[in-house]
Design a protein around this nucleic acid. Structure first.
Lengths: 234, 234
DNA sequence: CTTAAAGACTGCTAAATAACAGCTAGTATG
DNA sequence: CATACTAGCTGTTATTTAGCAGTCTTTAAG
């Protein structure tokens, strides 16, 4: 059982407010879910029941069209919220799927409980609002990048994101993704990702042996996409 | 002076809550701004001061990279919010620009006033949160579409969006956009838009004489992009 | 250990898209 | 009225990207 009082996720909105009386009561009814690697715990199109927080683990959030081609819309790690407005609003069905990239532990809250809590805890609701506003901003930046960057630039941008989001150890990302995952985030095909990785490898800009991937010269990589990035945001 | 008691925008979050005591007091300090066609009233990268509501008019919201190529991220009409979390959060600079597509009237609220209001009006904050969560969901759908649809499909999708958002009169959109605008929303070039319009015109699917553009056979257009759309969302 | 399966990789070809250049029509301006 | 400007349009070419087929490699399972 993941206990909020022991939790180290200082970015978790629930954790931040866990001293609040309302939140304390609410946490009595908390569920914890263990999730194996590759397990899908939210399925797009199924009825909404609640919302998840990542206690520990790494998750990919995916949108699928009728064409069955998957698009990774974002990644989540410790403390991150998953399930959009699934938690409270009027949406009847989940608009995304979520799948664990490694064994993970999730905190689950039912939509009714959470809605009650939010309506009587303004500061928490305010922070939720800011969270969604930030996510919206990031998503809109992503819209611009997908529309304007070349495939190579998008792949480089993805590599930099992965490093920033999950970090690296000994020059290798702390997360294991397939070439297809990189493609599904970058909005291209597996083959293109493979080709671009191999070029970047030859240029000495990245490490890439199987799933063991990492940055070797992040400055040079940033330089390659600099015409699409403004300092203001960084 | 745009008066909330007279306002007809039933989707406006402020209007909805305008009977609340806190909101009433807050509205004492409201500003109204008139904005000419083509005028830019938010500039990306400038310091945040507050947030706008569209009282009446049509707006395009744009993101520009260092490359100076513009990407229209969304359109706004009567009742819509513009300025992201500019209203309250920690963001120092606007992350988008906003420009009037026609003469418009805007309601302006300073970030400090609005933050105070939200913190003491939980129901309003809750609705703001839902608004951002919905926008996030739409933006993520857009990410998927930009990544997976062909140029032609994206242009058709844009045409359907414009019809849905601004409506049509006598088979012509109630908004005047250039081919470049369509391109900057669809994530392609002006030339491609022109070519695709002319094909669709020949097929009898749209009307297009200069800026006078409209749908002629929306069912057939929807059919063309159906493999990317799920009924669940509509 | 053996085998199957998934992932990684490469070269080739076809298709989609962007970029360029020039042309036309309408319209605003002095 | 002449001029210049903007938007719309088209054909051609160059570039980018995707798709396919086949091989090699690693990993996982029996």
């Amino acid at each position: 059982m993941a206990d909020c009082t022991q939790c180290k996720n200082l970015n978790c909105l629930i954790k931040i407010h866990s001293l609040d009386k309302n939140v304390k009561d609410f946490l009595e009814n908390k569920y914890t879910i263990k999730c194996k690697k590759s397990q899908q715990f939210i399925m797009e199109g199924t009825p909404v029941h609640g919302l998840f927080f990542t206690y520990k683990g790494k998750i990919k959030v995916v949108k699928t069209g009728a064409n069955q081609r998957e698009q990774i819309v974002r990644f989540a790690k410790d403390g991150d919220i998953i399930g959009h407005r699934g938690g409270f609003g009027s949406a009847k069905y989940y608009s995304i799927s979520a799948q664990a990239l490694e064994d993970s532990i999730l905190c689950y809250f039912s939509k009714d409980d959470l809605k009650q809590l939010l309506l009587k805890t303004p500061k928490l609701t305010f922070d939720f609002m800011l969270f969604y506003a930030d996510e919206l901003n990031e998503s809109e930046t992503r819209v611009r990048k997908l529309a304007q960057m070349s495939v190579k630039e998008r792949v480089i941008d993805t590599l930099l994101l992965i490093d920033k989001k999950f970090g690296s150890t000994d020059g290798l990302f702390n997360v294991s993704l397939t070439r297809k995952d990189y493609a599904e985030y970058s909005g291209t095909t597996e083959e293109q990702v493979i080709r671009i990785f191999s070029t970047l490898k030859k240029q000495g800009l990245i490490n890439a042996k199987g799933r063991k991937i990492g940055l070797k010269n992040s400055e040079a990589l940033k330089e390659e996409i600099s015409k699409h990035t403004l300092d203001i945001y960084n």
